[in-house]
């Protein structure tokens, strides 16, 4: 029998992550369909960045399972990482290499072909053509973030993970980032991003997920309409536990 069910882009089940005595994720379940832009919301310490780091395979869950497009992270890490592009808090670039040298180096790790052409195309996409041959150390934080975005896009990943991507960016860079996200959505790819600029997040997202108390407190597939409820759930601190729904 052929299954007609759509394979989720992300399927996380009973994910637990503790840092010492502090429980950050407490049995989180999350299934996200492909081809959507999902914004992860939550107050500081809600576990958004931890969840993204687990998805990017920079940290391991203490228990539970996570798969990306059906590939279990624990079973085939390299394959799962090949499906994913990530821009996390820090640009993670070699400061004494130029943007082009950084991209060439990472392209070789991703075993990409036609690297020069690929770099030219991605650089144009994120608007770094003019600074590509400058050492990263000399670039502004905004341009460093753009180079990091180019690195994440170079291998055309099916899932793009962005952790507060707009932090430190000027309005022009944020607008370009929105364009990239929109192009990704149109190409049927999946984007999962965290943000503290909630209004902006709700504006560009197809789906909003609010983390509270280490689990999914609220999930909405129409964030524009559910704005008030999402904002109420977002304002909960981690100590207040999961969202229990609107007060009667």
């Amino acid at each position: 029998m052929v299954s007609t069910a759509i394979q989720p882009a992300i399927d996380a089940r009973k994910v637990v992550k503790n840092f010492g005595e502090t429980a950050v994720l407490r049995g989180l379940d999350l299934s996200l369909p492909p081809g959507e832009v999902t914004v992860l919301l939550g107050s500081n310490g809600a576990g958004k960045s931890t969840l993204l780091r687990i998805l990017a395979m920079l940290t391991q869950a203490d228990s539970g399972s996570v798969s990306i497009y059906g590939v279990d992270l624990a079973e085939d890490g390299p394959a799962a990482r090949g499906l994913t592009g990530s821009v996390l808090h820090s640009p993670m670039l070699y400061a004494d290499m130029t943007g082009r040298e950084n991209l060439m180096f990472f392209a070789s790790l991703y075993r990409l072909q036609n690297i020069d052409e690929l770099i030219a195309r991605t650089a144009a996409q994120v608007g770094i053509e003019s600074t590509l041959d400058d050492r990263v150390r000399t670039l502004s934080h905004g341009f460093q973030k753009r180079v990091a975005l180019a690195r994440a896009l170079m291998h055309d990943p099916r899932l793009l993970l962005l952790d507060e991507p707009e932090s430190g960016l000027d309005s022009q860079s944020v607008s370009r980032l929105d364009d990239v996200i929109d192009e990704y959505r149109k190409a049927g790819r999946t984007v999962v991003m965290t943000t503290h600029i909630v209004e902006h997040g709700l504006e560009i997202a197809d789906r909003a997920v609010v983390l509270s108390g280490g689990v999914v407190g609220l999930e909405s597939s129409s964030p524009g309409q559910d704005r008030a409820v999402i904002l109420a759930a977002y304002s909960l601190s981690p100590e207040q536990g999961p969202w229990q729904g609107p007060a009667a």
Binding site: M57, G77, P78, A79, G82, S90, M92, A95, L109
Partner: peptide, 14 residues
């Protein structure tokens, strides 16, 4: 210092 070890860890290599 540059968190580049994490960038290496993101690559699809063992």
């Amino acid at each position: 210092e540059g968190n580049t070890l994490e960038a290496l860890m993101l690559a699809p290599i063992s």
